[in-house]
Amino acid sequence: MSAIPFPSPMTPAAGHAEVFVRYLDYYRETLLAKAAALPAAELRASRLPSGWTPLELLKHLRWVELRWLEWGFQGSAVEDPWGDRRDDRWHVEPAETLDDLAAALRAQGAHTTAVITGSDLTAAGRPGPRWAGAEPATLERICLHLIQEYARHAGHLDIVAELAGGPTGE
């Protein structure tokens, strides 16, 4: 399904940063491939009571990376860190396409890779609004959280794809 092979624990890696990047790249590309294989009408439709759509999920994951790495770890000013939400739910504008959202997610992924490979994994994020007064997490903890987020949402999209007659599994 993914253009990137599963990052097997038996494949040597130079260190933890490489392992984290491999998993994030794998899950990001797997989700994009699953979405691209769905019929166009299914991208904006929801098959679940919660109401989210595959396009909304892709947009959400781009913003998750932005919130945790740019706004949180790097402490960058982000005008609207919850830009994937409207009225307390995920939102995609009618003009946003799969191609647009895939490009944004991949660009965010390139930034994520640069941060992970260019930083000390034990470094804590910069204090700021992302942490809501708590101590900032280390980059390693953020990476583990992002992998968990991607893995969970890959399973969600598996279910939606199966219900829509699209591809499932890895």
Rank of each mutant, 00 (worst) to 15 (best):
1 M>L: 15
4 I>W: 00
6 F>M: 08
6 F>C: 06
6 F>G: 05
7 P>H: 05
8 S>D: 05
8 S>V: 13
9 P>L: 15
9 P>R: 14
10 M>Y: 08
10 M>E: 11
11 T>F: 02
12 P>K: 00
12 P>H: 01
13 A>N: 06
14 A>L: 04
15 G>F: 15
16 H>C: 13
16 H>L: 14
17 A>P: 01
18 E>W: 04
20 F>Y: 11
21 V>W: 06
24 L>N: 00
25 D>G: 01
26 Y>Q: 00
26 Y>R: 00
27 Y>M: 06
30 T>F: 06
31 L>R: 11
31 L>Q: 05
32 L>C: 09
32 L>P: 07
33 A>G: 13
33 A>H: 13
34 K>P: 15
37 A>D: 15
39 P>T: 07
39 P>V: 05
40 A>D: 10
40 A>F: 06
40 A>L: 06
42 E>P: 11
43 L>D: 06
43 L>N: 06
43 L>S: 07
44 R>E: 10
45 A>F: 08
46 S>L: 15
46 S>Q: 08
48 L>N: 15
49 P>T: 15
49 P>R: 15
49 P>W: 15
55 L>V: 06
55 L>K: 14
57 L>M: 15
57 L>P: 08
57 L>K: 15
58 L>S: 11
63 W>I: 14
69 L>P: 05
70 E>S: 09
73 F>H: 06
75 G>E: 04
77 A>H: 03
78 V>Q: 14
81 P>Q: 13
81 P>S: 14
82 W>G: 13
82 W>S: 09
83 G>D: 10
84 D>F: 09
84 D>V: 09
86 R>S: 07
87 D>Y: 13
87 D>L: 05
91 H>E: 04
92 V>G: 07
92 V>Y: 03
93 E>L: 14
94 P>F: 12
96 E>S: 02
96 E>W: 02
99 D>E: 07
99 D>L: 02
101 L>K: 09
101 L>H: 01
102 A>W: 08
105 L>S: 04
105 L>P: 01
106 R>I: 02
107 A>D: 07
109 G>S: 00
112 T>N: 03
113 T>K: 04
113 T>A: 13
114 A>G: 09
118 G>Q: 03
123 A>G: 14
123 A>N: 13
124 A>N: 12
124 A>L: 12
124 A>E: 12
125 G>N: 09
126 R>T: 00
126 R>P: 02
127 P>D: 10
127 P>T: 03
127 P>H: 03
128 G>R: 02
128 G>D: 04
129 P>S: 09
129 P>E: 05
132 A>W: 09
132 A>S: 11
132 A>V: 10
133 G>R: 01
134 A>C: 04
135 E>T: 05
138 T>I: 12
140 E>I: 12
143 C>S: 10
143 C>V: 07
143 C>P: 01
143 C>G: 00
143 C>H: 01
143 C>E: 02
143 C>K: 05
144 L>H: 03
144 L>D: 07
145 H>R: 02
145 H>C: 03
146 L>G: 06
146 L>E: 03
148 Q>L: 11
148 Q>P: 12
149 E>S: 15
149 E>V: 10
150 Y>N: 11
151 A>Q: 10
151 A>T: 10
156 H>I: 06
156 H>A: 14
157 L>S: 11
159 I>F: 09
160 V>C: 10
161 A>L: 08
161 A>D: 11
161 A>H: 09
164 A>L: 02
165 G>P: 04
165 G>T: 07
165 G>Y: 02
168 T>A: 14
168 T>F: 11
170 E>D: 14
